[in-house]
Design a protein around this nucleic acid. Structure first.
Lengths: 214, 214
DNA sequence: ACCACGATGTATCGGACCGATACATCGCAC
DNA sequence: GTGCGATGTATCGGTCCGATACATCGTGGT
């Protein structure tokens, strides 16, 4: 739950940001699970987080000594910073391992921030997710077996494709779990298509503080 | 948009149903794209469709001549039937081919009801969907190329997995488009895993009226 | 000199859908 | 006889999306 909340808190730990930039980072981080984050989600969430005290507003344009008569009030960019309570909140959310972290979206965000957790948590989430997908897979298998004659060819094809996606994801999760148990990084040695270059197998440095001043 | 609306209208064209059963059929039909339809979505939607005049309520327990004094009112199952306007509405929705039909959910439902459309519409939707996924794929490729050093290993792995899923779906769509153009059914001759048995390659009978009285 | 256009930037509104929850009935197994 | 799982209807709060609106800035074309 609360995909955005977790993601925003996570990103603001690296650097303060304003909404527009946050959206771009969000889209970069979650591009695999969510096409693009809508402002209709982002801004209300920001306000919610601010009201809860997890983040704080820090208006830009560093205190103009010049008195501008506020023609249309010259809307400055609003930069958000994470608070100490926000960091606690993030730690609390990222450490969750219940069924609420196994859904498609929730799993995606948690996975994207796996470098901020410990190995035990990662393992629990990966195994829970696998369980969830295995159940979905069984459901589809049953459907394709028992109720096949009641469904038309297109529906059947859709199920078949969904089933294949499940099988693939289970295999993926299995590899990740094996890697995790052996203490290695998430990288699979060779995969065929999709992104060849990468040989640094070092476990992800837990902190890495990069920033990007515009 | 309005995944449930389309799906409900489509299912009620086959047979009248009450909520509970509708949910099961919905889950069977859309199992590949949605785990299970929530009642918190279903019942409000039913009421909305009823208010719009697309469906009509037809209370069960055929007119008890016996006068029961309404102990807790004996809630009977509420059976819904599609109206003539509802059929028109369904025809209108299923014939849409705009960008609003290319999103994950919308595409799923439209595909599940492909046997209710003509080939031209099917082709347009499949090609639009392909376009959409290709764009998503390019976005992920860029991410893995340009911004790779800014992201940690887990995020990268997530993108890689997402990219692979995109590539796979594009290939799937390509096969479907080719099949569609040659006038065949959606079935791909052989696939390896996931549901072997099927050799009837007949194009889907456009009407097939099955029903299932409880 | 002008202006169209795209990127940057903040914001709201209505609607779709979900998860949790509540409650009532029925049949069957223990 | 009693608990338990399937059947069945329903609401509430909350998350998130898509469309829309509006303002600024720099760039390149005419």
């Amino acid at each position: 739950m609360a995909v955005l909340e977790l993601a925003i808190l996570g990103l603001l730990q690296d650097a303060p940001m304003h909404g527009y930039q946050l959206r771009k980072e969000l889209t970069a981080k979650l591009g695999a699970i969510r096409a693009a984050i809508s402002y209709g989600s982002l801004y209300p969430t920001l306000r919610r987080l601010q009201a809860a005290g997890w983040i704080a507003e820090a208006a830009e344009t560093p205190a103009t000594t010049e008195e501008v008569p506020a023609l249309t009030s010259r809307r400055g960019r609003v930069v958000y910073t994470i608070t100490a309570e926000g960091k606690e909140r993030f730690a609390e959310l990222i450490a969750q391992t219940g069924p609420e972290t196994y859904g498609d979206n929730a799993f995606g965000v948690h996975f994207a921030f796996f470098s901020r957790t410990d190995q035990a948590t990662r393992l629990r989430i990966l195994e829970g997710r696998r369980r969830t997908i295995e159940e979905r897979r069984e459901g589809l298998r049953d459907m394709l077996g028992r109720a096949a004659e009641r469904l038309d060819a297109y529906t059947l094809e859709l199920q078949r494709h969904g089933l294949e996606a499940c099988e693939r994801e289970v295999r993926w999760l299995e590899e990740l779990i094996a890697n995790e148990r052996s203490g290695r990084a998430p990288t699979v040695p060779q995969e065929g298509t999709a992104g060849g270059r990468r040989e640094d197998n070092s476990p992800p440095p837990p902190g890495e503080s990069r920033k990007e001043r515009p």
